[in-house]
């Protein structure tokens, strides 16, 4: 049981600074988690090997999750690697909730597409929680580092990664395990969606797309703004190829709704479900986009444990 007393003087000074920065209680928790991490067999991607370095990095504003190299997500402990978005507890909460309802919505094996998959946390936790062979997930992300991290996380959590380009696992019928295939691609790029890497129609679409407005982004805490990938955060990218001029952080929801409504792609099967995480205050606007653009029915809004409207669910 590591305790705080007995720190070498230099480390104790850093600890005092951390207490001033994040509060005494938080600092005590964090230093204990650092000490615990140091007693573990070395994590494959964490590069801090002593407490002093860890505290220095933390004081420099780096998120604890990057320093420790992982973040618990449900019963899993996922790898984290800058600048890929660190899995959030709100996402953890709705993903667990989704896992409890998913199979009542669809006969297994179900197919799922996770857009903007990042670390792969959503499909990987679903694959972990659902019975063997009941879920075949695909994830898409625009960042190469994210796709590699998602692959590493799948391997770490013992989720099978099917080879790319072969028959979809849900159709081949030979997969007795749950599978997750992370793919590199830009969902805003019509060419990618048409290229055939995906195998629609899916039973489920999930996404935690970037939803922070440009205005909010500029005032984010430094541990978010200076360390996590803006492409995973900013909802309205200043990108020439974007066809929307939204400023409410809703661009990706428009993109997703258009994909859902596209009759040639047929991304979601009839009676399929789309499950989207949204930012504070965005739920009703996203519900309206799903209703108006994608003609979704039975739209539900789920609250997170902090009583914020966090997830919008619709049915085709």
């Amino acid at each position: 049981m590591p305790a705080v007393p007995g720190l070498p003087a230099a480390t104790a000074r850093l600890f005092t600074l951390l207490k001033q920065l994040i509060g005494a209680q938080e600092a005590r928790n964090e230093i204990r988690w650092m000490q615990e991490a140091l007693t573990q067999p070395v994590a494959p991607f964490a590069d801090s090997t002593d407490l002093k370095t860890m505290l220095r990095r933390r004081l420099n504003g780096e998120p604890l999750q990057y320093i420790l190299g992982n973040q618990p997500f449900g019963p899993l402990n996922l790898l984290t690697r800058p600048p890929v978005l660190i899995p959030r507890p709100e996402t953890e909460d709705w993903t667990i909730r989704l896992s409890e309802r998913l199979l009542s919505w669809s006969e297994p094996p179900a197919s799922l597409l996770d857009l903007c998959t990042g670390s792969g946390c959503i499909p990987i936790l679903l694959c972990h929680l659902l019975p063997s062979g009941s879920l075949h997930a695909t994830g898409v992300d625009v960042s190469e580092i994210a796709v590699q991290l998602a692959r590493d996380n799948a391997a770490l959590c013992d989720i099978a990664v099917p080879p790319e380009g072969t028959a979809a696992p849900e159709r081949s019928g030979t997969w007795k395990r749950n599978t997750f295939l992370p793919l590199l691609g830009n969902i805003s790029d019509p060419a990618f969606m048409a290229a055939g890497g995906l195998r629609p129609p899916y039973d489920f679409i999930t996404s935690n797309p970037p939803y922070i407005t440009k205005r909010d982004y500029d005032s984010l805490p430094p541990s978010v703004r200076n360390w996590e990938d803006p492409r995973a955060l900013i909802g309205d990218p200043a990108d020439e190829t974007q066809s929307y001029r939204d400023t409410q952080g809703l661009t990706f929801y428009h993109t997703i709704a258009d994909l859902l409504a596209n009759p040639t792609i047929k991304l979601l099967r009839p009676d399929g479900r789309v499950v989207l995480e949204v930012g504070e205050g965005q739920a009703s606007a996203v519900a309206e986009i799903l209703d108006r653009k994608a003609h979704m029915k039975d739209i539900e809004i789920w609250k997170d444990p902090w009583d914020k409207e966090r997830t919008v669910v619709g049915r085709t």
């Binding site: 709100e90 541990s223 978010v224």
Partner: peptide
């Protein structure tokens, strides 16, 4: 309280 929560915050 986590403020806005979600992507806005990465504090534990």
């Amino acid at each position: 309280s986590r403020g806005a929560g979600g992507q806005h915050v990465n504090k534990t």
